[in-house]
Design a protein around this nucleic acid. Structure first.
Length: 789
DNA sequence: CTGTTCTAGATTTTT
DNA sequence: TCTAGAACAG
């Protein structure tokens, strides 16, 4: 039953739980010799009677068992949705360790997200009961970073390097454009970023790129890319793409290193293989391909029907080419679905059958036929949310479903708003997966930037971010002058902002006022830096908040936002403590001593690599997420919302429809539909507000691709939306007589209560008003909004 | 140098 | 509609 008493969880990316069960190894526990080839196959075969099998191999179907036992040589498993591929992978790894006596350290499993890695680790642990050692399980990025830390002597980067996320990357690109004297209006930083990342997905370095002969912009891009790469090295920072590229180059160019990792990771597994990109493919072939002296013990698991990251460089070619790269590869299909009803499987299969570029694979199930697909036609997005929430309550009340049996899936995060509103109103606890990452919040990024500067003063992006945060009188012009110093071509000119800061202070180039401010800042940072080596991160963290006055600034503000920012900083404090606890627990004093200076680096690395979908799922809450975020999950009941042309499939009206993109949208639809076990709802609205404007939408083409006999259609008429139980839309005016606001007019707001208009600005029809509420609170609103359309 | 207002761009999806 | 960067005034 739904617990109606629970308070709403507030949604948003909570960071809790991210670090649970995530154990990095620092003390090297691996000997670097080549293990003897494992000839000693255990006597388990496909014919072994079920009751003689170890538990983890029982109850697998034939192809699953085949895939699990085919441990040597290249294997590609084409696993349909819900066909038990994680089960198979777990069984396979357990079998390697338990029966074939392969050391867990010789096994690598690559997953798409950190959350998936955590789950797999848990499942392997369960299968092996009491095993102490775990195989390496992680994302491409986390594994690559680990390797880079270990092999830093071969890299242009020095040890405590930092990782730049997308927005850091964008800042660096801006500063590069600036340095090159390019106008950001003509060369958009975003376009440069897209270009750079595209290059990196394919593993193309600046000098390798061949611009088309007469294409000036490509030539310019190439140049910017080169300068950007240099700036990365100067900042001692890696962006996401670079993490993989540089690891690839390390393996390609350093044979000894490559050999070592080939023998370290003798059995490699890759989940969600359909979403790997070129550089990940190259990385894998470095470790496994015969061409590079690899062992070919590679097992990839994927489903081209679920490939939904083409826009990020995922290359379906990786699936199609597998058999060429690894001749003699065994291809195994898992086609039996254990998750969904017949109806859902048939509907989803019919939809995906409209794609032309796919390998034939037929999903089937022994599950009962189940309910028809519920197609709900509503008037607008408010009604959609209202109806879905009411239905969720009904299912809880009448059929005993609990909230975590259900999920709402949408195409874009922006669609979550309506649902949040109604969920809050109805006091149903919910959790949004994805959205704004905890670590992307401004205050968290600020403080992390400080921490990054502490371990790596070369990090100019972070330094520029915090040099005047909170405001300490170091303004734009000063910063610009500092940056200019780094652009100088003199032989011993500083290359980093930090260097520029130091030399300029040494050479007394500033007037007294600026000089003092800068040197104050410098000494503060230096002092904290010196404490870093001996003290815990949590202690430095406190001094940081103290010395910079960050929290006291926030306290001064006294707004609700500031309050929640302070709370977030406290949450960060908890996370740091939790992290230190986890790493230092059970360690000897000596070990702690060596560990301490590394703590901050590891902490920052983790914060950069967790994604917004890595949030732990909490107990009985309704889950909402994008269709991309639902990959790998399943729910008894699924609501897919906003099935409208333009929104889903998402198209840009001014651009021609790209057939390939349309097929990706369709795969996304397939992924969403196959999340449902028992019941699937699909809603579409007649019209909805997009960017504040009403748009009329046709029902999504995907709806018509489902056979009619599988669908139960419901059309909700407008009157229902205005029924007494429907909360009115936000505001109501008491005693309003006209369409225009006047000063002194009384306003009732559902959240803030009663107030009166204090000020009116803006032109007729687009007035903005300031309302002063009884509580003394002053808020600004759009009058149009306030007058109820 | 700071705080405010103005404008443009974004909403497709993320390691 | 909202946000973040840019431009402007104090």
């Amino acid at each position: 039953m739904i617990d109606f008493e629970d308070a709403p969880s507030g949604g948003g990316g909570r960071a809790r739980g991210i670090f649970q069960g995530h154990r990095y190894q620092f003390v090297e526990e691996v000997e670097w010799q080549v293990a003897p080839p494992t000839e000693a196959r255990a006597e388990i075969t496909l014919n072994t009677p079920e009751d003689e099998l170890p538990g983890y191999l029982q109850n697998l179907n034939l192809p699953q068992k085949e895939a699990a036992l085919e441990t040597h040589g290249p294997v590609m498993v084409l696993a349909g949705a819900g066909s038990g591929k994680t089960r198979m992978l777990t069984a396979r790894i357990a079998y390697l360790i338990d029966c074939l006596k392969i050391s867990p350290y010789r096994i690598l499993a690559v997953t798409f997200t950190n959350k998936a890695a955590m789950e797999m680790r848990q499942r392997i642990g369960k299968a092996l009961q009491h095993s102490v050692a775990y195989p390496d399980v992680g994302t491409f990025h986390s594994i690559a970073v680990k390797i880079l830390r270990r092999e830093s002597q071969h890299l242009p980067f020095t040890q405590p390097f930092v990782i730049y996320d997308d927005s850091d990357q964008l800042s660096l690109i801006r500063s590069v454009l600036n340095k090159l004297g390019l106008d950001t209006k003509k060369t958009s930083p975003k376009a440069v970023q897209a270009f750079v990342n595209r290059m990196k997905c394919d593993g193309v370095e600046p000098h390798e790129f061949q611009p088309a002969d007469f294409d000036r912009s490509e030539k310019q891009m190439k140049e910017i890319y080169g300068v950007y790469q240099k700036a990365l090295v100067d900042s001692n920072a890696l962006d996401f793409g670079e993490i993989l590229c540089i690891t690839y180059r390390l393996f390609r160019d350093q044979e000894a290193v490559r050999k070592r990792y080939q023998s370290l990771y003798q059995f490699i597994h890759v989940d969600e293989y359909q979403d790997t990109n070129r550089i990940q493919y190259l990385l894998l072939s470095m470790l496994t391909s015969r061409k590079w002296g690899g062992h070919e013990n590679l097992c990839v698991v994927g489903d081209e029907d679920q490939s939904i990251y083409k826009w990020r460089g995922a290359d379906i070619g990786n699936i199609l080419d597998f058999e060429n790269e690894y001749p003699g590869a065994k291809v195994i299909k898992l086609e039996q679905n254990y998750r969904s009803s017949q109806t859902i499987i048939r509907a989803a299969s019919d939809v995906i059958a409209h794609n032309t570029e796919r390998k034939r694979k037929t999903l089937w199930t022994e599950n009962p036929e189940g309910d028809p697909i519920q197609r709900i036609h509503v008037v607008d997005e408010r009604m959609e949310a209202q109806w879905v929430i009411a239905e969720i309550q009904r299912l809880g009340r009448e059929q005993g479903y609990s909230l975590n049996d259900m999920a709402i899936l949408y195409r874009t995060h922006a669609q979550s708003r309506q649902f949040e509103d109604y969920l809050r109103r109805e006091k149903l606890p919910y959790q949004m997966i994805g959205g704004v990452r905890f670590y992307d919040r401004k205050e968290i990024k600020d403080i992390l930037a400080y921490l990054k500067v502490l371990i790596n003063p070369s990090d100019s992006v972070s330094l520029a971010r915090i040099i005047n945060v909170p405001a300490r009188g170091i303004g734009k012009t000063t910063l610009e002058k500092l940056e200019e110093l780094t652009h100088s071509k003199e032989p011993d000119a500083p290359t980093t902002l930090w260097g520029a800061l130091k030399t300029s202070l040494d050479q007394n180039t500033w007037n007294a006022r600026v000089h003092n401010k800068l040197s104050d800042f410098l000494t503060k940072i230096e002092r904290m830096r010196s404490r870093m080596t001996t003290e815990l991160v949590s202690d430095v963290y406190h001094e940081l908040l103290e010395a910079t006055g960050y929290v006291s600034e926030l306290k001064k503000e006294g707004t609700v936002e500031a309050e929640s920012r302070i709370e977030n900083l406290e949450e960060l404090d908890n996370l740091i403590k939790e992290f230190e606890d986890e790493l230092l627990r059970g360690k000897t004093e000596d070990e702690c001593l060596t560990l301490k200076p590394q703590l901050l680096g590891i902490f920052l690395e983790r914060t950069s690599l967790v994604s917004s979908t890595d949030d732990a799922m909490e107990g009985s809450t309704l889950k909402m997420m994008t269709l991309h975020g639902c990959k790998g999950l399943e729910f008894p009941i699924v609501f897919m919302v906003g099935l409208e042309e333009g929104l889903f499939p998402s198209t840009r009206p001014w651009e021609e429809v790209d057939e390939e993109e349309m097929e990706e949208e369709r795969r996304l639809c397939y992924v969403g539909m196959t999340r449902a076990e028992q019941r699937l709802y699909m809603t579409h609205a007649n019209s909805r507000r997009v960017w504040g404007q009403f748009q009329i939408h046709e029902p999504s083409r995907f709806l018509s691709e489902i056979p009619k006999e599988l669908v139960h259609q419901i059309r909700l008429i407008p009157q229902q939306a205005r029924s007494p139980m429907a909360p009115s839309s936000g505001f109501s005016l008491s005693g309003s007589s006209g369409k225009h606001p006047w000063i002194g007019q009384e306003i009732r707001h559902p959240q803030y209560g009663i107030g009166s208009i204090h000020q009116v600005t803006g032109s007729e029809g687009d007035e903005r008003v300031v309302v002063r509420f009884k509580s003394g609170l002053e808020k600004k609103f759009l009058a149009r909004f306030l007058m109820g359309e």
